[in-house]
């Protein structure tokens, strides 16, 4: 173990702002990205349903690039 106490750990030899500032922003941004993706997943299905209703009433022919049919 490298540290005499937890306060020494958080103190980081006087460089706490630099070390914890780096790690805090990293984890914050990663958390933001994950949260954004989870929100996007929830809204995506609603959006798809709405678009399905809209596009069903279209008289346009289907686009030529619908090769996803499995």
């Amino acid at each position: 173990m490298q540290w005499e106490s937890w306060s020494a750990f958080w103190h980081m030899g006087g460089r706490a702002w630099y070390v914890w500032g780096s790690y805090a922003v990293c984890f914050a941004l990663i958390a933001l990205e994950v949260a954004q993706l989870m929100r996007a997943r929830r809204t995506l299905w609603q959006k798809l349903r709405r678009l399905a209703m809209l596009e069903n009433t279209d008289t346009l022919p289907p686009p030529p690039d619908a090769s996803g049919a499995a």
Partner: peptide, 21 residues
């Protein structure tokens, strides 16, 4: 995860996405 979202959005007119929906 993002790829799946993009695929669903772009392939939304295909039968398999309609079935999923």
């Amino acid at each position: 995860v993002r790829l799946r979202h993009i695929i669903l959005m772009r392939e939304r007119r295909s039968t398999w996405v309609r079935a999923l929906l």
